[in-house]
Amino acid sequence: MANLKDIRKRISSVKSTQQITKAMQMVAASKLKKAKDSVVQARPYAIKMGDVLASLAVRVKPGKHPLLERRDEKKIELLVITSDRGLCGGFNTNVIKAADSFMKEKGEGSEEILLSVIGRKARDHYRRRDWEFKTEELNSGTADFSQAESIGRTIIDRYVEGETDAVYVAFTEFKSAMTQNIVVKRLLPLEPKMLAEDEIPVEYLYEPSEDVLLADIIPRHIYTQVFSMLLESIASEHGSRMTAMDSATKNASEMTAKLTLLYNRARQAAITTELMEIVSGAEALN
């Protein structure tokens, strides 16, 4: 029979853990709300940007811009987006798993893979496996457009210089607090949205010329995409943490209930033994 004092200690430790997980869950819930709002608010800009690009791209030959040009995928860059902090269930592990299987699939050919990471978790994971990073950034938990811009710029530079032939991103797409999809998306070369067959592109006046505009808009479109991936990843992180902490809190409640039962039983047993001893002692005196 377990020692009464030990059980009491266990109970209080489980209870204090529960307080922590409960607090983390509530913090994650409020952060999730904010992150979700930023995802939703950032959408009009991103969608419109894609539309403008599509309407421009149909008018310009694919060879006109290096970022639209397709090459044989010999050197592939993979950008892995994770969080800095843990305690969010399988969030980071899942992204890393998807990244690993992507690399395995692509690595079987003659392709060379270059790695870039955002977030401490991915960085630590791959550093332990002796990877070198092209780009290495932390993920502070709030997306910043200028950060997305600088990341996007280095990715574009490498692509234009021929250091990479394609760029993919492994990140978590935000659907809702409960569902998140881990996806590996191609960032470069760019594939502008095609107009439907019966859709007639609107004839625009351009100022400056369409080539100049296109050259200006394409990089910006990449930054926007990186930015929205960051936003989605952050929202997913909070969602994932919220669910993980919620179930941790529930588990802690269950654990306390079990331990309390155990404790009461042990206490009862101790009392019974003690009574028996007294009774038998008294009997012996008579």
Binding site: V52, S55, L56, V202, E203, Y204, L205, Y206, E207, P208, L213, D216
Partner: peptide
Amino acid sequence: GHTPFLTT
């Protein structure tokens, strides 16, 4: 009623 126009 402005004609379609795209600019910076």
